[in-house]
C-alpha cells in the first residue's frame, strides 16, 4: 500500500516538472513579445534621449555579474540539498536572496535616476518599452525573492523533504530562466543600445 502511494507521488512530481516547463515556455513567449515591442520602438525617441546616452555600461555589467553569481549560488543549494545538508541549503539561499535583492535595488535605483533626470516612461515609445521590458524582469525577480523567502521558511520548519526539494528544484529552474532573460536584456537593450544599433 505504502509503495503505491509513493509511486503516485513520483508521477505527480513529473507532472509538476512538465507543467512548470510549459509555464516557463509561456513566460518565454511573454518576454519574446516584449523584446519584439522593444525592437520596434527603440528608435522612437520622440525627440528625447536614446539608449546610447542614457545607459551606463559598467552599471549594467555590475547588475549582470550580480545576477549571474546569484544563479550560481542558487545552483549550489541543489548540490547541498542532494547531500541532505539543510544548513548549507539555507546559507546558499540566503546569499542568493541577498544578491537578488541587491540586483533589484540597483535596478530600482537606475529607474529612479532616469525618472529624476526627466527620462520617465511618458517621454517616448522607446522609454515606455524599456521600462516595461526591464521592469517585467524586475517583477519576476521580486516574485522569485518572495518564493525564496517561503522556501527558506519551509525548510526551516520541515527540513528537507521531498516537497521542499521539489520546490527548490522548481525555484532553480525559474531563477536560471530569469538569468537567461537578463542576458538577452543585457545584450539587446544595453549592449546594442550602447553601440547605437
Amino acid at each position: 500500500m505504502a509503495e503505491n502511494i509513493d509511486l503516485v507521488e513520483t508521477a505527480e512530481s513529473t507532472k509538476t516538472y512538465l507543467g512548470f516547463w510549459i509555464y516557463i515556455m509561456t513566460d518565454c513567449i511573454l518576454f519574446a513579445s516584449l523584446f519584439a515591442v522593444y525592437a520596434v520602438l527603440h528608435n522612437n525617441t520622440n525627440g528625447g534621449h536614446s539608449g546610447q546616452t542614457l545607459f551606463s555600461m559598467p552599471y549594467a555589467l555590475a547588475e549582470t555579474l550580480i545576477l549571474l553569481t546569484s544563479s550560481f549560488t542558487s545552483g549550489l543549494t541543489i548540490l547541498a540539498a542532494r547531500r541532505n545538508n539543510s544548513k548549507k541549503v539555507m546559507l546558499w539561499m540566503a546569499i542568493t536572496f541577498f544578491l537578488g535583492g541587491l540586483f533589484l535595488f540597483l535596478e530600482v535605483k537606475e529607474f529612479n535616476h532616469l525618472i529624476q533626470t526627466g527620462n520617465s516612461w511618458r517621454v517616448s515609445g522607446f522609454l515606455s518599452s524599456y521600462f516595461t521590458l526591464v521592469g517585467t524582469h524586475g517583477l519576476h525577480i521580486s516574485i522569485g525573492l518572495i518564493w525564496m523567502a517561503i522556501l527558506v521558511f519551509f525548510i526551516f520548519r520541515n527540513g528537507l523533504s521531498k516537497k521542499t526539494i521539489k520546490g527548490l528544484t522548481l525555484f532553480n529552474l525559474f531563477w536560471h530562466f530569469l538569468d537567461v532573460i537578463w542576458i538577452f536584456i543585457f545584450s539587446v537593450v544595453y549592449l546594442m543600445g550602447h553601440v547605437g544599433l
Binding site: N46, R122, T132
Partner: peptide, 21 residues
C-alpha cells in the same frame, strides 16, 4: 493598459507610439 494608466507610448498616436504594432 499601461498606455492608458501610466501614460506610456506603446500604441498612442504620437509620442513615439505605434498603433500598427
Amino acid at each position: 493598459y499601461l498606455d492608458r494608466f501610466l501614460g506610456m507610448h506603446f500604441f498612442t498616436a504620437g509620442g513615439g507610439g505605434n498603433p500598427m504594432m
